[in-house]
Computed example of a mutant assay.
Amino acid sequence: MTPYLDLTLADLRRVLDVDLAGPFLCGQRAARRMIRQARAVGEAAVRDLLNGSRRHVAGPRRVLR
């Protein structure tokens, strides 16, 4: 580990990229995936209703009858 007084600005930027940008980018990717999955569930519910199905999708893993 580098002592605080010996850190360069480049070192600080590398630490910030890992500690701040990394979680931010992972969160963005996860949010996009969740939105796609929610759309798929919503589209399936509409398709079921249009086809006369009596089941209603309450979530990605739970079906209410």
Rank of each mutant, 00 (worst) to 15 (best):
L50F: 08
Q28W: 03
R33W: 09
R13F: 06
L5S: 10
L7P: 02
Q28V: 15
M34Y: 08
R55T: 00
G42R: 09
A40R: 00
R13M: 06
R62D: 13
G22M: 05
C26A: 12
V63Y: 01
R62I: 08
D17C: 06
R13G: 06
D6K: 09
D6N: 12
G22Y: 02
I35F: 09
P3H: 04
R62V: 13
L20K: 05
A21V: 12
L50C: 07
A21R: 10
R36E: 06
V63I: 00
L5Q: 11
R47C: 04
A38V: 05
L9M: 07
D11F: 07
A30R: 15
G59T: 03
C26E: 15
D48H: 08
L25E: 15
M1Y: 11
N51Q: 10
R32A: 04
Q28I: 15
I35Y: 06
R36K: 13
I35Q: 02
L50W: 07
L9H: 07
E43G: 01
F24Y: 05
R61V: 09
D11G: 00
V41Q: 01
R47A: 14
E43H: 02
Q28A: 12
R55F: 01
G22R: 02
F24V: 13
L12N: 03
T2K: 15
C26R: 13
V46S: 12
L64M: 01
A38E: 03
G59I: 04
A58P: 00
R65N: 05
D6T: 07
L20S: 03
R55Y: 01
Q37T: 12
G52C: 09
R33F: 05
R14K: 15
M34H: 15
L50H: 13
F24K: 12
L12T: 09
Y4S: 04
R14Y: 14
G22K: 05
F24R: 12
A44H: 08
V41S: 03
D11M: 04
F24W: 05
R55V: 01
R61Y: 14
M34T: 12
L5Y: 08
A44F: 06
L16W: 08
L16G: 06
L25P: 00
L50T: 11
L64R: 03
I35C: 02
D19N: 00
R29F: 11
R32H: 10
